[in-house]
Computed example of a mutant assay.
Amino acid sequence: MMDRPQDLILIVEDDVSLAERLAQGLREAGFACRIAGSVRDAELLLDEAPPALVLLDMGLPDGDGAALLENIRGRNADLPVIISTARSGIADRLGGLEGGADDYMVKPYAFEELLARIRIQLRHSERVQLQRSVGDLTIDLPSRTASRGGQVLDLTPREFDLLAYLASLRGQVATRQMIQQKVWNVRSAMASMENVLDVHVSRLRQKLDGPGHAPLLHTVRGVGLVLKEKE
């Protein structure tokens, strides 16, 4: 069965021969592909056409793939990223996965295995786009509703947007600047924006972490906010 042709894969790989072979195989499987040989090229392509998945090499000529991965997560917390690298150490694997990658493959690998893992990540991504969960909190994106312990939360549109964005980060901390950019689309620092954010966070926390519920919305002092179950 052919995959949907609209599924665009961004291959970030500085080995031109390998990148072309991967692209050819993926195109034959029904995917569209674009190739970036550097961090800079990848950032440009991410801006031009958001992909459905990124296949990311860690050793790039103008920087480390870990920095690009962090950039990708700041742009889109739900975008599937599979690391494709020769780095096989346990520390490298853990660093990549803890840094936000969804999967980690060590070169050389069988193309059939890569294809299977890409399909798994894309199926998971489709589900994530519809619903997100954190503990007993469920967020339904199509209906723009959220419930905790089966009880629907009475959220304003902006409170829902804030909650959905924090949930999309999967336990990673969101800085105030990230929240302002992603939820309010404000890119410059403004004192009034700080006050608006504080008010919305306070109201959301009251509705989300009410009596009988363990806190999910946490403030990381000096950094920002994180939505997760207490460890």
Rank of each mutant, 00 (worst) to 15 (best):
L163P: 05
D64I: 05
L155T: 08
G89P: 02
I83K: 00
G63Q: 06
L137E: 12
I90C: 01
G74K: 08
S88R: 03
V134S: 13
A174F: 05
A116S: 09
P142W: 10
G135T: 06
R73T: 10
G149K: 14
G65D: 00
K107C: 04
E113G: 01
L155M: 10
E113F: 04
G96Q: 01
G63K: 05
G149E: 14
V152P: 04
A101S: 05
Q151D: 13
A164V: 08
R132P: 04
R132M: 15
L122D: 00
A146N: 11
F160A: 09
Y104A: 03
I72H: 04
Q131C: 14
K107R: 12
D62T: 02
R127I: 09
S84G: 04
S88L: 00
P108K: 07
T145Y: 11
R170H: 14
I139K: 14
L130D: 12
V152E: 14
I82R: 01
G96E: 00
L122Q: 03
Q172K: 15
D154E: 15
R123N: 07
G65C: 01
Q172Y: 12
G65Q: 00
E159N: 11
I72W: 04
S143E: 14
G65R: 00
P108N: 07
G95Q: 02
L169I: 09
L169Q: 15
G99Q: 05
T156P: 05
L130H: 13
L97P: 03
S143L: 12
I139A: 12
D102G: 08
D92C: 02
G100S: 06
S168I: 07
S125V: 04
Q129S: 13
T85D: 01
G89Q: 05
G135A: 10
D136Q: 14
R158M: 15
A110F: 06
Y109M: 08
L163W: 10
R119M: 04
M105G: 03
S84C: 12
R117T: 02
A86I: 03
V81I: 05
K107D: 02
L79W: 03
I118F: 01
D92P: 05
S168A: 15
T138F: 13
I120V: 11
D102Q: 11
